[in-house]
């Protein structure tokens, strides 16, 4: 059911802008008076002002993208490079391990990146990398205040990304896969 908004034609007095101006002045004057008396939004939220009390972001905020470890502390990323391909500003650069690179530190992954760099100066925080990642290894977390003194400093390498990203135990895609795979070797198949 559409609601029909009744738009009454404005009277001459209303069309002179005068009542609108007057009401506007009243609203702004009221806020001004409140502020002079010492009220403001920061105070009403009861937390204090920004540099001392950092702003708390709400859930789902798209901050800086970081790599996460799984519940056992292993690198989740398998160097598939999908995020590198999808990244619109080309902020991500992955160096794959190659044929003779170090093996993945996770038992059921074939490889992990030799190097994983995100240039935070290029990143636009769109979240496509998080969306595209099949391993759920990269997440936009709640960091919003990224500063550095040089451009080089703002290219975050793998170590740093993993350290900042922390453990993301929420999604445990591979947790029981090893046991399941082992169980499939025996016959008859055990059912859980």
């Amino acid at each position: 059911m559409t609601k029909v908004v009744d738009r009454k034609p404005l009277s001459f007095y209303e069309r002179t802008y005068v009542p609108a101006l007057w009401e506007g002045l009243k609203v702004t004057a009221r806020h001004f008076k409140r502020s002079v008396q010492g009220h403001n939004t920061a105070k009403e939220l009861g937390e204090g002002y920004y540099p001392e009390v950092p702003w708390r972001v709400s859930e789902g905020y798209r901050g800086a993208p970081y790599l996460v470890r799984d519940q056992d502390g292993h690198t989740k990323c398998v160097s598939c490079q999908l995020c590198e391909f999808v990244c619109p500003p080309k902020a991500i650069r992955i160096t794959p391990p190659g044929p003779d690179g170090p093996p993945a530190d996770r038992p059921n992954a074939e490889k992990m990146p030799r190097e994983f760099e995100i240039n935070m100066l290029r990143c636009i925080f769109c979240g496509l990398c998080q969306e595209v990642c099949p391993e759920e290894a990269i997440f936009l977390e709640d960091h919003y205040s990224l500063t550095g003194l040089t451009r080089e400093e703002m290219v975050f390498d793998k170590e740093r990304l993993l350290k900042l990203g922390g453990v993301h135990a929420g999604t445990q895609k591979w947790k029981n896969k090893l046991e399941e795979a082992a169980a499939q070797e025996s016959f008859p198949v055990a059912t859980h």
């Binding site: 806020h31 001004f32 409140r34 502020s35 002079v36 009220h39 403001n40 939004t41 920061a42 002002y49």
Partner: peptide, 10 residues
């Protein structure tokens, strides 16, 4: 200052 006060800022 006035803009801040009108917008409930500091």
């Amino acid at each position: 200052k006035v803009s801040a006060f009108i917008q409930d800022r500091v």
